[in-house]
Design a binder for these strands. Structure first.
Lengths: 339, 339
DNA sequence: TTGTACGCGTTATCAG
DNA sequence: CTGATAACGCGTACAA
């Protein structure tokens, strides 16, 4: 038998297991001499307190779960990075779950996580169109949960969002300022809370500038690359917009591809602006005007909010909302200067 | 007391805990009637076997750890996605650790993981220049480990890599075919195994075409965006290359930015090709020629390799190497047609 | 088919 | 300051 545990270490040192245990915990009384002795021997024998035993004992896992709709999106990668950093600073580890925008997976993940595997959850949701009530079924056993970016408005839990309404209002206004009259709005799922908020900013900006809102200019896209390609080409051909506002970066890319194919010139024939955290937006052809969310910071804030709950400094049902500011960055895709 | 456990569920059903336990395991004998009864009640009371208790008992965590140098890189995001998918199919969860290319963090993560928290590790390494022997210090207690992409050649463990030598040979040859005579090679860390392999392909391609290898054309970059900007501008100005081969996409972006600033026209004055898994490479200005690795598949293969070990179908020290093929995709950044 | 009892590796409590 | 002991929640021999 080659595995090491507290008992064997105790035997090796002629000490009790309690003493060993104490050497690894900061709070307990122990002479610094024996402590060093123990830690030295532990290192030699490659001993570490077993995580599962400790956590069974302490009823906590020092782990937080992160659930995101997708990974192939700069925004979520950056957000996860932020979460990871804060988690590590707090001695926590992170489990990653990708729903691929599948609500059923989300429910499965969340349910599963309630077996003690994680102490809390940071999530960007995938199923606004569905019944979120599953989150309330856990009663007061529900794990601490923090939403970021994509949230369920009807679930009371802390959240980190950006000023989406205002951003899309300003983004739309920017297109109008650049001379656009027919602005299409591309969205993946109208019913997503984030889709709705962003859309409202678009609608209100149109109204302010006395442009009649035309529902047909709302283009509802899917999650499939191929489908979107078809949908967008169709929309550009049929609707003949002179401006496009896309609610996620993926749709801006699809619009670019469509324009290449259809020989539509950006920004001459069509101006494009998008929500996007893409760091290389300036390198696109043409460079893409963006509304950029502070993705890393959003992740950090979400993690911090979760730790406030985990540290018992706030009730987990107490709604707490952090609103961060996005930046609108004008680039060539919305320029009205001849190039 | 509101928490549910096996004992309370047993009481509620007037059954023993072992019977409950059996209902949740496929192998044990139990009448399907009682099993259904138990599962129904469990659902009602929101009971799930505690993960930590189970795993303490069974001495395994059903968790694999994924260690990557960075997250803000399409390649790693995609690879993680692949790993996640395979893990989920096998009923495993994944823990994510980001080293930020810091070798010390890598060592800390690996050490820590040997406390039972994970059953295996999938890693792309961060410290080729350092002493990797720490991986051998665990003796036969070392966790099953699979490298992907960035590996330590001196550590015997399964690995998934791409045909880097050949790819960079072909990439370099492509630049030569397009008329380049002075090809700079940009690398983040010369000593990284992956950097060395890729560099050798570059060198051999030059030789084949009777171009003298000039060491000063090897540009050693850093991980800092600002530093790279300076280094690359300097290199472009001093060395006046007519072609650039970058070993990671980040450096291609930096080169693009530098060229914008220096008014160097790509591809007219300078042709650029890069290793990159960026899906929107065609959208860049100009579209970027790439050597694209099958990132998702690499992740999947790495995970599969790990599961082969975890399932006991292979000895963990048995070296097993999977080599996947990258694709070289020519776009405008290496075009020699007048645009 | 079901129940009893022990142990997985820790840590908190209490006694010394 | 250190040691003995019980308990965390579960799964499996073994017994019934």
């Amino acid at each position: 038998m080659d595995s090491i545990n507290i008992k064997k270490l105790a035997e090796a040192l002629k000490l009790s297991t309690s003493t060993i245990s104490r050497a690894f915990r900061d709070n307990s009384d122990i002479s610094s001499a024996t402590k060093e002795l123990i830690l030295a021997k532990a290192k030699e024998l490659n001993y570490q307190p077993n995580h599962y035993a400790s956590n069974l004992r302490e009823q906590k896992s020092k782990t937080i779960a992160v659930i995101v709709p997708e990974l192939a999106n700069n925004y979520f990668s950056q957000a996860i990075h932020g979460i990871e950093r804060i988690a590590r600073e707090n001695g926590y580890h992170i489990l990653i779950y990708v729903t691929d925008d599948d609500f059923k997976k989300e429910v499965t993940f969340i349910r599963h996580l309630h077996n003690g595997r994680a102490d809390g959850i940071v999530m960007s949701v995938s199923g606004e169109a569905n019944d979120h009530n599953y989150l309330n079924k856990f009663g007061n056993k529900r794990l601490p949960l923090v939403f970021f970016d994509r949230i369920y408005e009807d679930i009371e839990t802390p959240r980190v969002i950006t000023n989406d309404y205002n951003s899309s209002f300003l983004g739309t206004e920017h297109l109008i300022d650049q001379g656009c009259k027919r602005i299409a709005y591309m969205v993946v799922n109208k019913s997503l809370s984030i889709g709705k908020t962003r859309m409202q900013g678009y609608i209100d900006a149109l109204e302010k500038h006395h442009i009649k809102f035309d529902e047909s200019l709302i283009v509802d896209c899917s999650n499939s690359y191929e489908e979107n390609s078809v949908i967008i080409k169709q929309a550009l051909t049929d609707l003949k917009p002179d401006g496009v506002f896309t609610s996620v970066e993926r749709l801006a890319f699809a619009t670019y591809y469509a324009c290449y194919d259809l020989k539509i010139s950006i920004p001459h024939d069509l101006k494009v602006i998008s929500f996007s955290s893409l760091e290389i937006a300036p390198l696109l052809n043409p460079s893409l005007s963006t509304i950029t969310q502070p993705a890393v910071e959003i992740g950090e804030q979400a993690a911090k909010l979760l730790f406030i709950i985990l540290d018992g400094k706030a009730d987990k049902n107490h709604p707490h909302e952090v609103v961060l500011q996005s930046k609108i960055i004008q680039r060539n895709s919305t320029s009205n200067q001849p190039k």
